[in-house]
Amino acid sequence: MTSKHAVRRFFPAAMVLLASLFGGISLVGASDIEEGKKVAFDRKKGNCLACHMIAGGELPGNIGPPLIAMKARFPDREVLRAQIWDATVKNPNTIMPPFGKHRVLTEKEVDLVTDFIHTL
C-alpha cells in the first residue's frame, strides 16, 4: 500500500469523524439558512407564516404554535424534518400541509427549511 492510497482512504473517514465530533451542530452554512428562510416565507412554497409566528416574518397567522426555541423542543433534527415532511403522521387530522409527502416542497427544500427552522 502506498502512502497516496492511505491518504485517499483516510480522508473520507476523517470527514465522518469530524462531522460526528461536531455532533448536534449541523454543518450548514449561513447561505443555506438564508435559502431555507426564503423557502419558508415564500407564499408559493412553505408559506409557514400563514399559520406560524416566526422571527423575522411579518403578519403571521396563529393557527399553529409560534416556532420558537426549536432546538430545545426538537433536539433531534430528524424529528423536526419529519414534522415538516408529513405532519399527518403525528396528527392525522392536522391542518398543516404534508409538505414533503405531497411534493409541495422538494427533498432539498425540506432540508433547507428544516435547517432554518432549527436555528430558531
Binding site: A50, L59, P60, G61, N62, I63, I95
Partner: peptide, 14 residues
C-alpha cells in the same frame, strides 16, 4: 379545517 376547527384564527392576516 378553516371554517369550523380554526374559525376565528388568523391565516396570515385573514
Amino acid at each position: 379545517d378553516c371554517h369550523k376547527f380554526y374559525s376565528g384564527n388568523l391565516i396570515r392576516a385573514d
